[in-house]
């Protein structure tokens, strides 16, 4: 019982320790603006910013921009997941595919994909497709690599057990190997999701007619400082929410797997 108590107390103190820097940052931000250390045109008060955020959450125009961002994010991420898992599994199951893929990935993975964006705009225009293409290019590699590495690391005895039971090689690849690699795949997909979130916003900042990123650029051009903070807060919250949702989904999908931190 007392051991449990000690664990509890430690959890509480750790939670408090974790809350401290966040509270501190918000506090300093508040004090700076409330006591006029910085003019509101440079740093608006956190209260103003969050109030504006809440107001905009009911604003149809804001929601429309957020919707455009979400649409690009999810379509791009979905394509990246399908391509990444598909190519990754194929490369794990076929040496020739792997030998062809590896050097190409080695060259393309560290290339800053954002630099492709001007070209993607030339090819696909200003609308959704160019942003979706960029999201795919950026989110693809973590998913593909995690799938390949996870699939290659699957214990061959798991596959042999299935093969001996009568499953064909192809069937094993898409049932046994794919499932056994799931923890790694989900880790890659989560990284890909956050990257997708970030990159869609940046693309909208660089060249776009709508979306959350564009709202930030527009606000900056008009020196509306409060409206500059709101999109950033919105995209960060979106990232946090998606991350949490993804963790929940992972926990469901990974029933039975040894837990990993």
């Amino acid at each position: 019982m007392s051991a449990l108590h000690a664990v509890w107390r430690r959890n509480i103190s750790e939670t408090l320790a974790g809350a401290l820097p966040i509270v501190l940052a918000l506090g300093i931000w508040y004090v700076i603006s409330a006591w006029n250390f910085a003019p509101a045109s440079l740093l608006p008060s956190p209260v103003t910013v969050f109030r504006r955020f809440l107001v905009l959450l009911g604003d149809p125009q804001f929601l429309q921009n957020a919707g455009a961002t979400l649409y690009r994010l999810f379509v791009g991420f979905g394509i990246a997941v399908m391509l990444g898992i598909g190519i990754g599994i194929l490369a794990a199951g076929n040496r020739t595919v792997a030998a062809l893929m590896q050097p190409v990935i080695r060259v393309l993975a560290p290339v800053p994909k954002i630099a492709l964006y001007p070209a993607l705009v030339l090819m696909f225009g200003f609308d959704h497709s160019s942003k979706i293409a960029l999201v795919v290019a950026d989110a693809l590699f973590p998913i593909l690599l995690a799938t390949y590495q996870g699939a290659v690391a699957v214990d061959p005895k798991l596959v042999w057990s299935a093969r001996a039971a009568g499953a064909s090689q192809t069937r094993c690849l898409f049932t046994i190997v794919l499932t056994a690699a799931l923890p790694s795949i989900l880790t890659g997909a989560r990284i890909g999701l956050i990257i997708a979130c970030i990159v869609v916003f940046l693309a909208e900042m660089i060249l776009s007619t709508d979306g959350l990123g564009q709202l930030l650029v527009r606000a900056a051009r008009n020196f509306q400082t409060v409206d500059m903070f709101v999109p950033i807060i919105a995209i960060s919250m979106l990232g946090l929410l998606l991350n949490a949702a993804f963790n929940m989904l992972s926990k469901r999908l990974l029933v039975g797997f040894p837990s990993q931190n």
Partner: peptide, 9 residues
């Protein structure tokens, strides 16, 4: 097998 090789899922 010695390592059991059960399907964990």
């Amino acid at each position: 097998f010695q390592e059991f090789a059960l399907f964990p899922w």
